[in-house]
């Protein structure tokens, strides 16, 4: 079976709607098919990756720690759009530090988050076989 390039596009904030959680679950389930998976975060989707989320008082599960498990599922390319961060007053430092262990490099920890500009994000999107939007 030939490997296809899959991109999951996240454009929604984490808790106001169910899209973000649904996307994450589909990414985890889809990882079993061993395809070339990337995940994109743009527009309000960048809010999903912020650190320090604490949902204790709103009665829903805080799923932000799960992004740090994606590396175990061989999902190691998380593209984040720089313009979307800037419009929301965010910088890379406001995001969780998400890493994966490179098995082919003695389990060296490498960053999963790749900050790209809008034009580069368009290139990432144009380079895919399948694009799934949330």
């Amino acid at each position: 079976m030939t490997t296809k390039k899959f991109l999951y596009v996240n454009r929604k904030a984490p808790y106001g709607t169910i899209y973000a959680l649904e996307s994450l679950e589909v990414v985890l389930i889809g990882a079993a098919f061993e395809q070339d998976v990337s995940v994109a975060f743009l527009d309000d989707g960048v809010f999903q990756l912020t650190k320090g989320q604490d949902t204790g008082e709103i009665g829903v599960k805080n799923f932000s720690p799960t992004f740090r498990a994606l590396g175990d599922y061989d999902v190691t390319k998380l593209y984040v759009e720089a313009e979307s961060l800037a419009e929301r007053g965010l910088t890379k430092d406001d995001l969780q530090d998400i890493q994966y262990e490179d098995e082919d490099d003695d389990y060296a920890e490498k960053p999963s988050i790749i900050i790209v500009n809008r034009a580069e994000m368009a290139d990432v999107m144009a380079d895919q076989d399948v694009v799934l939007s949330f």
């Binding site: 985890l28 990882a31 079993a32 599960k61 805080n62 799923f63 720690p65 799960t66 740090r68 498990a69 175990d72 599922y73």
Partner: peptide, 10 residues
Amino acid sequence: EYQIAPAVRV
């Protein structure tokens, strides 16, 4: 740590 139960292969 991650708020999920890992898949078997993981």
